[in-house]
Amino acid sequence: MLEIKNLHAEIEADGREILRGLDLTVKAGEVHAIMGPNGAGKSTLSHVLAGKPGYKVTDGSATLDGVDILDMDPAMRAATGVFLAFQYPVEIPGVGNMTFLKAALNSQRKARGEGEISTPDFMRLVRTEAGKLKITQDMLKRPVNVGFSGGEKKRNEILQMAILQPKLCILDETDSGLDIDALKVVSEGVNALRSPDRAFVVITHYQRLLDHIRPDVVHVLSKGRIVKTGGPELALELEAKGYADFVDEAA
């Protein structure tokens, strides 16, 4: 589903290369975990895939179901099925959460040449998905992420994911700042979305998230490249020994 080849990307402002020949293949239905030390380029990878301005791709490619996504504007990438659950979700004062969700969903549908969702269908969809994530009516009515706790913001990201039904879900440290109960709710939300035609890239530092969201493949990202790939046991090994071995290998 996702095929990244020899991806090089730098920071536009200062020309610093962050991704240095990154290869990654994620098949439909799979969950891949990406771990790695701070500053390795994990968030950068997620931003480059989602199309955040400020980065320049200097070499390599990234395709989703064979279609080059790096050439698309970010809104089009979203409509094509890329979704990034942000490490730090942004607040948008005055814009109701529901309003935002509906505008986003309809924009994506329009870009795909589909009609708008009817209001009753939308309400039903939101009610069902919000219920699963223990998101209250009040949170749905409030402005996007304004005054939400850390855990509420992350749950809200998963709600957006559930409503927008992307093909590729990238989760950037969704577990950071969550207590154990919130972690469980979020993980259940993610697990409910696992399906044979959807892929996940889960960026995390901690095994504890992977206890709940069982990955098929685990990668270590260091200095802008994947330096080691293995099964779920690799995460346990990292938890026990730290990144030191791999970081040295990459050096």
Binding site: A79, F100, Q108, Q160
Partner: peptide
């Protein structure tokens, strides 16, 4: 830029993202 990108990454075209944020501001 972060607000704008947040909206755009959810599928909203740029002008629509601006209109949404501004409408929130003046609500």
């Amino acid at each position: 830029d972060d607000q704008l990108f947040y909206c755009i990454s959810r599928g909203l075209p740029t002008e629509e993202a601006v209109a949404l944020i501004v409408n929130g501001f003046v609500r």
